[in-house]
């Protein structure tokens, strides 16, 4: 593998290379100061901020107003704290943690949980990226999209291709859910065609990208390998050249041309 000094790695947002370790959090959020001191209504997983009067099962949506801005994440208490009592359950439950099959409650709770995905993605987007851009040449027309253990192999192949005069870059995607929509969109919009390199027979990652972004199918080719051995850089090089010159890829791999969404 070539040394990292021969290529410039940049994040899709344009900042410099991936740090050796992600930044560590410096402090924990303080526990909410407004936990109720009474225990007549359990300040449960969801409603520590609600007044006891507003969180009965008959008004299951009652507390959503005060919870709209919390990203679907409840304040947390730890067993042993005065006034922090909760009941956690995997069954659908009221904000107090008691099991409930009420349909309105179910909808409110599920939608609340879905909000977490948006909130997590928003928070991650505000931090150093988890995706790895390998961009040895500027303004590449071609992209290689990959994930997982063949990322390093793909980066080695990109270096070889660039050395051969191809205008190509790669993006290794490390966050699959919630999906880094903005970063992957930016990457795919910046190229004319892309090769999705993955080690399975059914193009699962390409399918995920299409499901999450709902577009780009016409520019996503697949390079699949599923003989039980990991990718070799040469196989990725050959797979890429299939796009350019239409030659057969390595016999250990399968090339699936872009077909649309």
């Amino acid at each position: 593998m070539s040394t990292s000094s021969t290529r410039a790695r940049a994040t899709p947002t344009g900042s410099s290379s991936r740090p050796a370790t992600p930044p560590r959090p410096t402090s924990r959020p303080a526990p909410p100061s407004n936990w109720p001191t009474t225990t007549s209504c359990r300040p449960s997983c969801c409603t520590i901020r609600s007044s006891p009067a507003s969180c009965g099962p008959s008004t299951s949506r009652c507390s959503t107003a005060s919870r709209d801005d919390d990203g679907g994440v409840s304040p947390r208490s730890i067993p042993g704290q005065q006034g922090g009592r909760f009941l956690a359950t995997g069954n659908e439950h009221t904000p107090e943690g008691h099991i409930s099959e009420d349909t309105d409650n179910r909808v409110a709770q599920l939608e609340r949980r879905l909000r977490k995905l948006e909130a997590i993605r928003e928070e991650l987007d505000g931090r150093e990226t988890h995706q790895t851009l390998c961009e040895p040449v500027e303004d590449a027309d071609y992209g290689i999209l990959t994930f997982g253990s063949q990322q390093g192999t793909v980066e080695e192949a990109v270096d070889r291709l660039a050395a051969d005069g191809h205008a190509v870059k790669s993006l290794g995607v490390s966050a699959l859910m919630p999906f880094p929509e903005a970063e992957v969109t930016t990457f795919l919009e910046s190229v004319d065609e892309a090769l999705v390199v993955e080690m399975n027979g059914s193009a699962q990652f390409r399918g995920l990208v299409q499901k999450e972004l709902g577009r780009f199918g016409p520019k996503l080719h697949s390079l699949l390998k599923y003989n039980g051995n990991p990718f070799e850089p040469g196989e990725v090089v050959e797979g890429f050249e299939t796009i350019i010159d239409g030659d057969e890829p390595a016999p250990t791999t399968r090339f699936v041309p872009a077909a649309g969404d």
Binding site: T39, P79, G83, L87
Partner: peptide, 27 residues
């Protein structure tokens, strides 16, 4: 009640902590 954690499994018995006031975790 707030220094007690009652952790339950699944089954009729798993509802014990719905009827017992303490910290509860229905796993």
């Amino acid at each position: 009640p707030e220094e007690v954690l009652l952790v339950t499994g699944i089954g009729c018995s798993g509802k014990l902590n719905s009827y017992f006031e303490s910290y509860g975790f229905h796993t």
